[in-house]
Write a protein that binds this DNA or RNA. Structure first.
Lengths: 154, 154
DNA sequence: TTATTATTGATAACTAATATCAATTTCATA
DNA sequence: TATGAAATTGATATTAGTTATCAATAATAA
C-alpha cells in the first residue's frame, strides 16, 4: 500500500472513531465528501465553494450546507485543518502528519501557496509559550511576499 | 516630549505625507479618527465596531463607513496594521515601531491578546524566505492556547 | 471665487457562514 | 427485521461583517 493510501486509511479510522464517540451517524454524503477531499485535495487548500462545485458534478444530490458541515466535522475530528489567508474565505487542508506542523508562504502576486516546516521555529515557539506560562494549543505562521517567478517578472 | 507623543507625531507626519502623495484630502473626520485611534488604542486591537461606538459618543456626526474607510487608509499608509484572530472581525492596531515586528498569543478561553517579539524567530523567517527565493513582504505569527490564569482555573 | 475632485453619511448590496425546519435516513433496541 | 428515537439532509432564510452606491457637501488647486 502506498503511503498516501495508508494515510487516507488512518484518517478514515480517526474519523469513524470520532463519529462513534460523539454518537453521530455515518452517511453516504459524508463518505463521498471524505473520498473527494482526501482523494483530490492532498497538499492543497480548498475553499468550501470549490469543493462543493467539484462534488456537485458527480453527486448533484449533495447540498452546499452539508459540505460546510462536513468540513467542520473533519476539523473537529482532527483530520483537517482550517486556514484563512486573508481573502475572507476559509480554506481546508487534509492533515498529512499530525506530528509535523507546517506553515505557509503566500505569494501576494499570484496567490500561490507554498508550504514549509522548520524545527527551529517550532522549538522557539514552545520556549516562548513556556516562558509566558501559556499552554500552547495551536499556532499559525504565514509569510506573505513575492514568489521567485513573480519576483522575476517585475 | 514623551516617547508616545513623539511616536504619535511621527505617525501623523507619515499619514499627512501619504495623503498628499496620493492627492487625497485631509478632513475633520480623518483628524478625529486619527486622534482617537492613536490616543486611546495604543497597544490594543480594536474592531471597527468598537472604535465607531467610541467615537460616536463624542462626535455623533461621524458615520460608520467613514471609520471603516479611514482605518483602511491607516493600513495603506503603513501607520496601522490589520489583524484577524479568527472571530470574523478585523482588528486594527497602531504601529508603534515599524522596525520591530511583534506577534500575538491569543487565549482561547478568555480571548485576551498578549504580544511578544523574538529575534530568533525573525531571523529564522528571513532565512526561510531567502532559501526559497521568496521576497518577504510581511508575516503573521499567532499562538493560540490557555493563558496562565485560565490555565489555573481549569 | 470658481471649478474640479475627493469625501461624507445613509443605506443598499454583497458575501461567507450559520440557523431553521420539514422530510428523510441511520441505527440501537426490541 | 421491524420500530422509534435521534441525527442528518437540502433548500432556503438569516445573520454579520464589509463594501458599493450616490447625492450632498467639503476641500483644494487654479
Amino acid at each position: 500500500m502506498t503511503p498516501v493510501a495508508q494515510m487516507k486509511m488512518d484518517r478514515r479510522k480517526t474519523f469513524n472513531e470520532f463519529i462513534s464517540r460523539k454518537r453521530l451517524k455515518s452517511t453516504k454524503q459524508r463518505d463521498v465528501i471524505f473520498e473527494e477531499f482526501f482523494g483530490n485535495y492532498m497538499g492543497r487548500h480548498v475553499t468550501v465553494e470549490e469543493l462543493y462545485e467539484d462534488i456537485k458534478r458527480k453527486y448533484p444530490y449533495i447540498g452546499f450546507a452539508t459540505v460546510y458541515r462536513t468540513l467542520k466535522l473533519f476539523r473537529e475530528s482532527g483530520i483537517a485543518s482550517e486556514r484563512n489567508f486573508g481573502d475572507g474565505k476559509a480554506r481546508y487542508e487534509p492533515i498529512r502528519d499530525e506530528r509535523e506542523h507546517h506553515h505557509h508562504m503566500i505569494c501576494t502576486e499570484c496567490g500561490k501557496i507554498y508550504e514549509f516546516a522548520n524545527n527551529q521555529v517550532e522549538s522557539c515557539l514552545n520556549q516562548i509559550a513556556k516562558l509566558n506560562e501559556f499552554k500552547l494549543e495551536n499556532h499559525k505562521l504565514e509569510i506573505y511576499g513575492l514568489c521567485s517567478s513573480c519576483r522575476e517578472s517585475r
